[in-house]
């Protein structure tokens, strides 16, 4: 490996492990390192490369993934993650396991969850061993969150937000809460006719009323301040309509087919 790459790598290590992490320096160093990796043919490794070099490359990418989460750059995390996948799956057997692998996989799962990409979430989950899903705290956390979300146990999700197994998980908590609130709101619209303001606030996990009021305005709820209740507009009873177009099209199709048979 080129010596220049090595010094840069050591510099990155120093910047990343110093407390607090020097994010600015990391994000300056990372593009240079990536260029270096490409020149050394390690970013998308081909068949014959030194295992030690691969470990370094994986390390750089992992740091990159964490840095992009801390700088709140999700698309960049996405890119790092897809680059890391080669190292985790294709070289999984020949490389020594990385202790950052599961935190990063877990973060990826949470990311999919917050973006409401449930199908991708499950496809990704399928590639992880079931023992690890049950035992590894980094993976178990997003898996539990998903289960509760699907069930509708939103309060459990809310309570779990502080139990994140790693610092980086908290970044997603806010957006996750946004998703949950919208979910709850749509449930309330269907399930209640009216709701006292105070209860609505607890149900939606708001601590003060002004936040609730802005949220209510966004969703178009009618707030009656004098009796302090929220009334939800009922989506009018579904009208039964005869789907004329479709019935006609179907009948014509049958006629044509029968004509062919007889």
């Amino acid at each position: 490996m080129a010596s220049q790459l090595k010094t840069l790598y050591e510099e990155l290590g120093r910047a990343f492990y110093s407390k607090p992490t020097d994010l600015k320096k990391c994000s300056l160093l990372l593009p240079k390192l990536k260029l270096g990796l490409i020149e050394a043919g390690l970013l998308l490794p081909q068949s014959d490369v030194n295992l030690g070099d691969l470990v370094v490359a994986r390390d750089i990418l992992e740091v990159g993934a964490f840095v992009s989460i801390r700088t709140r750059d999700v698309p960049s995390f996405d890119r790092y993650f897809s680059q890391l996948q080669t190292f985790y799956t294709d070289y999984g057997e020949s490389l020594p396991p990385s202790k950052r692998e599961y935190p990063i996989r877990g973060l990826n799962l949470i990311r999919l969850l917050t973006q409401n990409r449930i199908a991708d979430f499950h496809t990704t989950l399928e590639s992880i061993d079931s023992d690890i899903i049950n035992d590894n705290p980094f993976i178990r956390h997003p898996v539990n969150l998903e289960r509760w979300l699907m069930e509708g146990s939103y309060s459990k999700v809310w309570n779990a937000r502080e139990e994140a197994p790693a610092e980086e998980y908290k970044f997603f908590v806010d957006s996750l809460m946004g998703t949950i609130r919208n979910e709850i709101a749509s449930c309330e619209e269907a399930a209640y006719e009216s709701l006292p303001l105070k209860d609505a606030a607890t149900l939606l996990f708001f601590t003060n009323q002004s936040e609730l009021l802005t949220f209510a305005q966004k969703r178009g709820w009618q707030v009656d301040l004098s009796s302090s209740t929220i009334t939800f507009k009922r989506t009018g009873e579904e009208k039964m309509e005869i789907p004329k177009q479709r019935l006609i099209a179907a009948s014509l199709a049958y006629a044509r087919e029968l004509e062919q048979i007889v």
Binding site: G152, S153, K156, E189
Partner: peptide
């Protein structure tokens, strides 16, 4: 066998929204 009443309320709300059951919750 749910863990709390709070959970039950959310779960029933979700079931109503997803069209599993017809009905409504009277919170008071």
């Amino acid at each position: 066998n749910l863990d709390s009443e709070e959970d039950a309320e959310y779960i029933v709300g979700k079931a109503i929204r997803d069209g599993v059951i017809e009905g409504r919750i009277v919170h008071e």
